[in-house]
Design a binder for these strands. Structure first.
Lengths: 120, 120
DNA sequence: TTGACATATTCCCATATAGGAATGTAATGT
DNA sequence: ACATTACATTCCTATATGGGAATATGTCAA
């Protein structure tokens, strides 16, 4: 690895979940563990595709596997999503601020000119 | 666009923030708006690189710009991060479960064999 | 207008994809 | 041993990317 054009999908959770299908898989497997075949059937994806996505998710710890006969049961490891949740949480107070300002402005307009809502 | 190897960085917020430098930029610009030059100085990145990252962030609505003389002042638009926060939140109850189980198991062991903590 | 400053864009290139198709491997039942 | 089921991996290809370097665009001031 000399100069990477784009960070590997397996470099961290952020890169892994950038792919929409992988987000779907995670949402599915957090409810209950499932064999690959079920994921294929439910999400209407090709089996190799699912296996590849699971590989990526496994590499970053977003899913865990256990064997059960011929089946491999995958489940989401929700702990691995926490870092993303925490990072996004640091912005929470700011969008709250934003909403406040919008609300305040709306109320100010309401007081100043009660009919302005009807216009437009 | 026929068959995209990987979704464009500008396809949504998830893809845009997959890049670590862009996350740094967002964290910086949420506190206060700044001209490009300051971002360059603070994060120690090349100016063209910063401009390119800002372009991506702007395309997905993660930052906003306003002109001020020769400067362009960029600021994070925290609202655009909410969807990510919401998505990760759907997993919150599950990692809480997980933590509960771990805690319960630890306490069960404590009760059954108080010295086991010392071993290993 | 010219020069200086601030930011944006373009060109080039090595790289890691994601999908499709085909093939490989592993576990089970008979 | 063999066929079958369930997954995983490999090969191929088009694609978007990020960094570096160079250049373009835009804005002000004198």
């Amino acid at each position: 690895m000399q100069t990477m054009a784009r960070a590997a999908t397996t470099s961290d959770a952020f890169n892994a979940v950038a792919e929409p299908r992988r987000r779907e898989i995670l949402s599915l497997l957090v409810v209950q563990e499932r064999p690959v075949g079920e994921i294929v059937a439910i999400l209407r994806l090709d089996q190799p595709s699912v296996s590849k996505h699971l590989r990526v998710l496994r590499n970053v710890g977003l899913v865990r596997v256990r064997r059960n006969g011929r089946h491999k049961l995958y489940r989401t490891n929700p702990e691995a999503i926490r870092p993303m949740h925490q990072w996004t949480s640091t912005f929470e107070r700011y969008w709250r601020h934003q909403l406040h300002r919008v609300k305040e402005r709306a109320e100010a307009m309401e007081t100043a000119n009660p009919e302005s809502n009807l216009k437009l």
